[in-house]
Simulated assay, not measured.
Amino acid sequence: MLQDITLKITDRNGQSHEVLAPTDMNLNIMEVIRMYELAEEGTIGICGGMAMCASCQCYILNDIELPRMNEDEDAMLSEAFNVKRNSRLGCQITISPNLDGLEIELAPED
């Protein structure tokens, strides 16, 4: 049975938001952030989720098993700013039941 999961997202102003994300719509983290308007319009998902801009870079804050990073995501993060060991592109992480409780922080815009 499909269900909504809870994500804890810290926006670029340091404010924490607990949001529900549906697991039955094939959304990714970047789309959830846009859906809840947790980043200013035009500052996230600029490439449309193609792993080509890193505007949806986020830091994974807890130990939830994520899908393996693909070559495109790895290449984009190797060129992005403000990258940390726990950086991922939100557009490359599809919402699924095993992400329930995931905590992320949006990377700075610049």
Rank of each mutant, 00 (worst) to 15 (best):
S78W: 01
K84C: 05
S55Q: 05
R68E: 15
I93Q: 06
C91R: 10
E18I: 15
I33F: 08
M30E: 08
L20A: 10
N13E: 14
L7E: 06
S55V: 07
A80T: 04
A80W: 14
C91Q: 05
L61W: 00
I64E: 02
G45K: 14
A21F: 07
A51F: 02
E40A: 07
E41P: 00
E18Q: 15
A39T: 03
A39M: 06
I104L: 14
N28D: 15
D74I: 06
N28S: 09
A80C: 08
R12P: 07
R34C: 10
D72K: 09
G90P: 09
E71Q: 14
G101H: 09
N26M: 07
A54T: 13
E105G: 01
R68N: 04
L99C: 10
T6G: 00
E18M: 03
M30Y: 13
C53P: 10
L27I: 00
N26S: 14
G45M: 06
P67G: 01
N98F: 03
I64Y: 12
S96K: 13
M30P: 10
T10V: 14
M76P: 05
S96N: 10
N70T: 01
A75M: 14
D24Q: 05
E105M: 14
R34S: 10
Q92F: 04
M50K: 12
I5C: 07
N70L: 02
I29A: 01
I29C: 01
M35P: 00
I64W: 08
P67H: 03
S96Q: 15
S78A: 13
P22S: 06
F81S: 12
Q57Y: 06
N86R: 09
S96I: 11
G49L: 06
I46Q: 08
I33R: 08
I95D: 11
L106K: 10
S96W: 01
G101D: 09
I44L: 15
S78D: 15
M69L: 13
